[in-house]
Design a protein around this nucleic acid. Structure first.
Lengths: 216, 216
DNA sequence: TCGCATTCTTGAACATGTTCAAAAAGAGTG
DNA sequence: CACTCTTTTTGAACATGTTCAAGAATGCGA
């Protein structure tokens, strides 16, 4: 059975996520979380070193859900564009309950030193899980060999951009974000097809080389 | 002459920017700024509604400097790639004194409700100034007509991405960011050239149409 | 069961961003 | 100058994230 500690940790986490959903990130205070969970402030901090760390858990959970949704949605789909579309929509689906505090999310997630920073040290595990989703996208589709290895990470980067757009998206139901996905996935599909053509291929290869160069 | 108010405002601002540069954003407190400027805490808040608003000023100043640097660097240069390169490097040059607190910059700049959010209401003026720099980039270069109107905004978006990369860039002197600029500017130049070809043009047009669609 | 080490819990204390009502200084007018 | 209205200044007060030293509970070996 779970030790007392694990139980308390889970209690605090679920209380926090619930309050994030209903009240938003800014209006949910650490004191509020502790009170609602029936523990002391210090106890909450014993399990989560910072408010941001709670967001990291949220990120983790959302990636898990995205993966599940995406796998289901991609079953039987073979076109790169359609598989990508499924993965992107799944990501937004998983994040939707938290849209109203997306701003705060981004605010605490992007600073390089933040525990939640998706490009950083602390979130390596989650990031790899997220990239794995796009690896799954690529695996099931026809993609030129010279692109296959790099594509998942690039798609994940694109997904990050979509999420950023979504965070700013004030249209009802984030309609514009859905349009963006529906429009950009086919575009990317076509670009990948064209990437075999002699006029385009050098360009893509140059881009890949650049990517390698700036990563070292 | 400046009214007393203007003077105090300027004093607070310059003190703040100075402290941002020397101590970083997080370690510079509003109380610290007020003390160093020789005014009370309340006074600082009389002129700047929030710490973020001071960052907006910084953004404003950096755009001004970028514009000056870019104009000078583009003089006599006619290739799109080279003009773009000049504009991008100028932007990073203008921001360099603040690199060590770039993280905090991004953190307060990106949340949608933030006064500093580069996509938001409050920064409309600065954003237009920034886009104007890229309009200048385009004006002096050979660009297909069907692209001319949209290109400046797209380049600005790309610049935002570069800035984001730069914020995370821990290499000495932000070497990798410079590599990114030197590599991506020619790539974009070639892409724009190719955009006239019958195989590529539909793709670019579709992208432009998508851009229009999601902006409405 | 006793003693000890580890794990967990607590709330006070601190620093900081922000607000606000009140006071001071300034500017204009008769 | 006297009066009034506006602009500017002040510092106390507040809420919140975070730290920490002290204490309580728990587990475990002898």
């Amino acid at each position: 059975m779970d030790s007392k500690g694990k139980q308390t940790k889970e209690l605090v986490l679920q209380t926090a996520l619930g309050m994030f959903r209903t009240k938003g990130f800014a209006k949910t205070t650490m004191r509020g979380i502790a009170a609602e969970a029936g523990v002391s402030l210090g106890s909450a901090y014993y399990y989560f070193a910072s408010k941001d760390e709670l967001v990291l858990e949220l990120y983790r959970e959302s990636v898990g859900e995205q993966r599940a949704l995406a796998s289901a949605a991609m079953a039987g789909v073979t076109g790169l564009a359609d598989r990508l579309k499924a993965a992107l929509h799944s990501g937004i689906d998983a994040l939707t309950p938290y849209h109203h505090f997306g701003g705060a999310f981004v605010g605490s997630a992007l600073p390089p030193q933040s525990a939640v920073n998706p490009f950083g040290e602390a979130s390596t595990q989650v990031r790899e899980d997220a990239i794995a989703i796009f690896a799954e996208v690529v695996e099931g589709a026809k993609v030129p060999t010279f692109l296959r290895a790099q594509l998942p990470e690039l798609l994940w980067l694109g997904y990050m951009a979509v999420v950023l757009f979504w965070v700013y998206d004030r249209s009802e139901g984030q309609r514009r974000s859905r349009l963006l996905i529906d429009g950009s996935a086919p575009l990317l599909g076509k670009l990948v097809s064209l990437s075999r053509l002699p006029v385009v291929k050098p360009l893509v290869e140059e881009a890949l080389a650049l990517k390698a160069r700036i990563q070292s």
